[in-house]
Amino acid sequence: MFARLVRSEPAYLFFRSPAAMLAAVVAILVIGGAICAPWLARTDPYDLSTFSLMDGLLPPVWQGGDPRFLLGTDDQGRDMVSAILYGARLSLMIGLMAMVIATVLGVGLGLAAGYFGGVFDAIVMRVADVQLALPAILTALLIDGVSRGLLPPEMQQDLRVAVLTLAIALSLWVNFARTARASVFVERNKDYVQAAMIMGQHPLRVMVRHILPNIMGPLLVIMTVDLASAILLEATLSFLGIGLPADSPSLGTLIRIGMQFLLSGEWWILWVPTLFLVALVVSINVLGDFLRDVFNPRLR
């Protein structure tokens, strides 16, 4: 299995592309760090009792800081390493969930629209058109704003993560739907699909078992790129102060907090989370670009 994977074409291309390899290493490091945050981090950045104001505003180690805090601390005495690991954990979690929801929703609607056509197709595609004209961030902001009006105030804090995830997912589904639909139009008339339909298989089975595996390539590319978009969107919303509150900081919230120290000398509070976020998003985007080239032989 492993040997087959290593000798496969994508793997061959992968080991010939230094950019893709570097990106993969960075992505694995960041994602691994985020997953292992509870074991890697010295302190829990959500638990105020684990850090003290006495340790506030310490610079990184190489600028003469405390060896306990590798990348320094913020004004609350929060360890920056712990903060970015937990922040990335939250950002990745929201990004992944939003991407998965967007994929399921978009692919589902796209498959159905392409398979059944007619009125259903027309409705889905008109909605998609309208949403495509609105940039994702505007959609997410609107959904967030509406949820603030609709939800009772006491539930808002608890549901913040869910609302944010849903707002991001609902602003990203269009890409999946359009790609899935376009691919279905191509696949539907091929012999294997026709054969499955003539055999009287259930439409759902035809869509999921026969068509879906054959359009995984382009979908995988969009999933990668949209994961990056989802993480960026979450960071942007949190940076704008619309996303997550300051007591459960994602990377965007950390950057927002760091902005207050832009004019004073404490550069690490701002730049550590910023660089971490950029490294994560750039590496995912480079991988997405690589996948696009792999699945689109014409570009090679």
Binding site: A228, L232, A235, I255, L262, T274, L277, V281, V286
Partner: peptide
């Protein structure tokens, strides 16, 4: 430009301010 697309707008703003 590939790096440029990946850097969020607000980070570009922060870098320019800085």
């Amino acid at each position: 430009t590939l790096v440029g697309v990946s850097i969020p707008t607000f980070v570009i703003g922060i870098m320019l301010i800085f």
